[in-house]
Structure formats: C-alpha cells, structure tokens
C-alpha cells in the first residue's frame, strides 16, 4: 500500500516542473506541454484523494479536467497553427500583438 503522501509529493513535483517549464521555456509547444503537465499533476492528487476518502467525486472531477484539457489543447494548437501560418515562429516572446 503506497501511502497518500507519496502521491501528493509526486503531484507537487510534477506541478512544479510544469510551472518551471511554463515560465522558463520560450517554445510555445513546450509551454503547452507544461500546462498539460500541471493539469495531470492535479489529476493525480485528485485520484489519490478520491481513493483515500473512498469518494467518487474526485474521479468524476478528473474526467472533467481531462475533457477541458483536451478541448484546450485542441483549440490552443489550432490557434498556434493559425498563428504559425502568419508568423513562422513558435517563440512566445515574438507574439506580443496584445501589447497595450
């Protein structure tokens, strides 16, 4: 039986990697993957708590998160491709059209 704290630690580590990746890397694809990583880190902790508390709610929420993540990835990548057609680069710093 793996204690709950291990899952939490794994989740926290994965989340921190995701945050670091999001902040440190400039490649937009990598940033995307980092976001997915963070989402999945949360999923792990949700499933772990769900099992620990013997409640199904957490697992249901995970399905929601997965759905949202899929939708987000689909839309995000679509935007990215559309963007790439206009500006052949995936460097995030170049995309500053929204500068006020």
């Amino acid at each position: 039986m793996v204690p709950l704290s291990w899952y939490i630690i794994l989740s926290a580590v994965l989340f921190c990697i995701g945050v670091f990746g999001f902040l440190a890397r400039r490649n937009m694809i990598v940033m995307f993957i980092s976001i997915e990583l963070m989402l999945n880190a949360v999923n792990i902790s949700l499933v772990a708590f769900s099992h620990y508390l013997q409640q199904v709610t957490g697992q249901i929420l995970v399905f929601f998160v997965i759905t949202v993540a899929a939708a987000e990835a689909a839309i995000g990548l679509a935007i990215l491709i559309a963007y790439y057609k206009n500006n052949p680069t995936v460097k995030a710093d170049d995309a500053s059209l929204m500068k006020g």
Binding site: V19, L23, M28, M31, A92, D93, S96, M98, G100
Partner: peptide, 17 residues
C-alpha cells in the same frame, strides 16, 4: 493602466504564478 499589458506571455505567466 494599459501600459501594464506588455504582450509578453512570460510576464503574464510569472504574474499568475
């Protein structure tokens, strides 16, 4: 107020974190 809006992802991400 709009000068805060830099347009750089990174700074938004940092601010969020």
């Amino acid at each position: 107020l709009r000068t805060i809006q830099t347009g750089v992802f990174g700074s938004y991400g940092l601010a969020m974190t």
